[in-house]
């Protein structure tokens, strides 16, 4: 058993081993180790985009699967997301500098009258973990807040959260406002929150209901792939 506790020196691992170790360290929420490993890969002349996708995004994908399957719970996912964020902080300016492709952009917020924050923040963090740019509007958002953020940020995806049966109908108010402005189809609208379900999402005209943060990432990625394919096909 002593072998398992031997210190691993990150800088002595080859690229493949280090990448796998980073997946494990993300899983365990080891922030300092992630920061160290990101710097090592950059010193080894890895492209920032490769560090992001092969090490961080892939690691968070594994965290997402085990969260979805009820093996990891919110505390572990928060620790993993914090470790990922620390790595992202190093990569972000380099990614912008190198003009790396962006996965997509999402505006997300809890609807008016509802002050529940945790689930939405978890979705934000997991989306960032998957390489998305996320603009988190916080809680208690009016139609005007959403419309303003959409106009400014020009996101691919609009995410709305509600934890109360009394506030979830407000999602329809927002979607109806998008329709009235003729911009509904410019965005992928994803909704989530404890009392919601598939049927509700359909009834209010959303594109997808996301049961949890992991499903949100899967759904968003799928939609973005489809969008990119359409753009490629259409020229």
């Amino acid at each position: 058993m002593a072998d398992e506790l031997d210190d691993i020196v990150l800088s002595e691992l080859d690229d493949d081993e280090l990448t796998l170790q980073m997946h494990d360290d993300l899983y365990d929420g080891l922030k300092e180790e992630i920061v160290e490993a990101v710097n090592i890969l950059l010193e080894r002349k890895w492209q920032p985009y490769d560090v992001l996708t092969k090490a961080l995004v892939e690691g968070m994908r594994i965290v997402g699967i085990d969260f979805r399957d009820g093996i990891l719970f919110v505390p572990e996912v928060l620790l993993a997301a914090n470790a990922m964020k620390a790595g992202m902080a190093i990569l972000k300016p380099l990614l912008i500098e190198s003009g790396a492709p962006r996965v997509g952009t999402m505006v997300i917020g809890t609807v008016k009258g509802d002050i529940h924050d945790i689930g939405k923040n978890l979705v934000s963090m997991m989306m960032e973990g998957a390489g998305f740019e996320v603009i988190n509007l916080g809680i208690n958002n009016s139609v005007e807040n959403y419309l303003e953020a959409i106009a400014t940020e020009k996101p691919d995806i609009l995410g709305m959260s509600a934890l109360l049966t009394t506030t979830m109908p407000y999602m329809k108010v927002v979607i109806d406002a998008l329709k009235a402005k003729g911009i509904r189809d410019d965005y992928i609208v994803m909704v989530g929150g404890a009392p919601l379900n598939e049927e509700f999402a359909r009834a209010i005209g959303a594109d997808a209901y996301c049961r949890d943060a992991a499903v949100a990432v899967e759904t968003a990625t799928e939609f973005m792939n489809r969008k990119h394919n359409l753009l490629a096909a259409g020229g």
Partner: peptide
């Protein structure tokens, strides 16, 4: 489901 690679520190 996940094989451990050993933990540091």
């Amino acid at each position: 489901r996940r094989s451990r690679r050993g933990r540091r520190r």
